[in-house]
């Protein structure tokens, strides 16, 4: 996972442009992103999308691993409650994300580093709005440094 992520820190080019990994469920949020695209709705090019079958497929580990491997933020988005293609996947996911959310706060990880949202296939504008909001929040926080693997940053610095 994330093996081909460019390890160069996002601050190298001067202005900080956050790198955000977005886990989007196939049935709602991914389609919502698609709708935003075909509707030509503008949003920051900060997200790297990983399409997953359901928000219930997103192990909290993936989120932490993304942060460790150099993502400045993570967005997880799925179907609205009650709309899950698999009926209850997002409800079960919601409990897992609640535990992760509270645990991240306990560890002193900035709130806003990891965001969760529900976006339906019909909500192209809402998807763009979520990405704008998440990008601004992560931009304001600056590069992620708490969970990030310092060895990757050092390697990138050595490589210039």
């Amino acid at each position: 996972m994330m093996a081909d992520t460019n390890p160069v820190p996002s601050t190298v080019s001067g202005d900080f442009e956050p790198r955000i990994v977005a886990f989007l469920c196939n049935w709602c949020s991914y389609a919502g992103a698609d709708l935003a695209g075909i509707s030509r709705i503008q949003y920051p090019p900060s997200i790297r999308v990983v399409r997953v079958p359901c928000s219930g497929r997103v192990d909290p580990f993936y989120i932490l691993k993304a942060l460790q491997q150099g993502a400045d933020g993570v967005l997880v988005s799925g179907c609205h409650p009650g709309d899950c293609h698999y009926l209850t996947g997002n409800y079960v996911a919601r409990r897992r994300f609640a535990v992760l959310h509270d645990l991240l706060g306990f560890f002193g990880i900035e709130p806003g580093r990891v965001s969760f949202s529900w976006v339906s296939a019909a909500e192209g504008e809402r998807f763009a709005e979520v990405v704008r909001e998440v990008t601004e929040r992560v931009r304001a926080l600056g590069p992620s440094n708490r969970l990030a693997d310092a060895r990757l940053t050092e390697k990138a610095e050595r490589a210039g």
């Binding site: 409800y91 409990r95 994300f97 959310h101 969760f116 979520v130």
Partner: peptide, 13 residues
């Protein structure tokens, strides 16, 4: 492994 449709979701946008 369970859920309640009314679980708090104040952290989800």
């Amino acid at each position: 492994t369970a859920f309640d449709s009314e679980d708090r979701e104040e952290f989800i946008r």
